[in-house]
């Protein structure tokens, strides 16, 4: 564990608390893509199946359980408690275009052709693109509540911090590198670049998040 990874994980935790706070205080999930949230549940369940057969640390297990539980809870809030505030008609990204290629990629690129390893690879590839329905929705509506942009920023920071973490580990752990996680991670972080540009130039200057028409 190094500082980059710890701060990255904390940023990931923060993003979930920001999202929960947004939903609870506005009593609405407006502006949040159900599809992206459902993809995150898929990602966490597929990857953290290893809770049953691999123990890393208490920190690792607690975080995994938290990510599974909180992502399922968010789906529940969107689907039941605040269902009337969820508008599927603007959440139109076709996720089969993400799921198909991720299944294919995980069958080709994995560390061992076994059920658990293919699922692990699948979760890594799927996580890298899971934010696309959310970004697509943002693009479509052209604006977002400030709190929603803080959620996305925290999520983007989490991904960005994993990059120096990998560099640090490469140097300190004798050339250790995970090509699947690093490639997918770079792609994932890249997806946030446009968002970050608007976030830093507008939201952090006190303006509303609005995309040029």
């Amino acid at each position: 564990m190094n500082l980059f990874r710890l701060l990255g994980d904390l940023s990931h935790l923060a993003s979930i608390f920001i999202l929960l706070h947004k939903i609870q205080t506005t009593r609405s999930c407006r502006g949040i893509s159900f599809k992206t949230q459902a993809l995150y549940v898929t990602v966490f369940v597929a990857r953290y199946l290893d809770l049953f057969y691999r123990y890393v640390s208490l920190y690792n297990s607690v975080m995994k359980l938290f990510f599974i539980a909180s992502s399922v809870y968010i789906l529940y809030l969107m689907k039941y408690k605040y269902r009337p505030t969820n508008d599927p008609s603007i959440d139109t990204f076709r996720i089969e275009y993400l799921l198909g290629p991720c299944v294919l990629l995980s069958l080709i690129f994995n560390y061992k052709f076994s059920v658990t390893e293919v699922l692990w690879s699948f979760s890594i590839f799927l996580e890298s693109v899971a934010i696309l329905p959310q970004l697509f929705m943002l693009q479509r509506t052209g604006e977002a509540e400030t709190i929603t942009t803080h959620y996305l920023a925290a999520l983007g920071v989490y991904r960005a911090l994993y990059i120096p973490n990998w560099i640090y580990r490469y140097i300190t752990e004798d050339g250790v590198v995970d090509p699947i996680a690093v490639t997918a991670g770079l792609v994932q972080t890249g997806l946030y670049i446009d968002f970050f540009y608007v976030y830093f130039t507008k939201v952090l200057q006190g303006q509303k998040f609005e995309l040029p028409a």
């Binding site: 890393v56 560390y111 692990w120 580990r169 590198v177």
Partner: peptide, 10 residues
Amino acid sequence: GNGNGKKDEL
């Protein structure tokens, strides 16, 4: 190298 990936990360 670490062929099995960094399964200690989240």
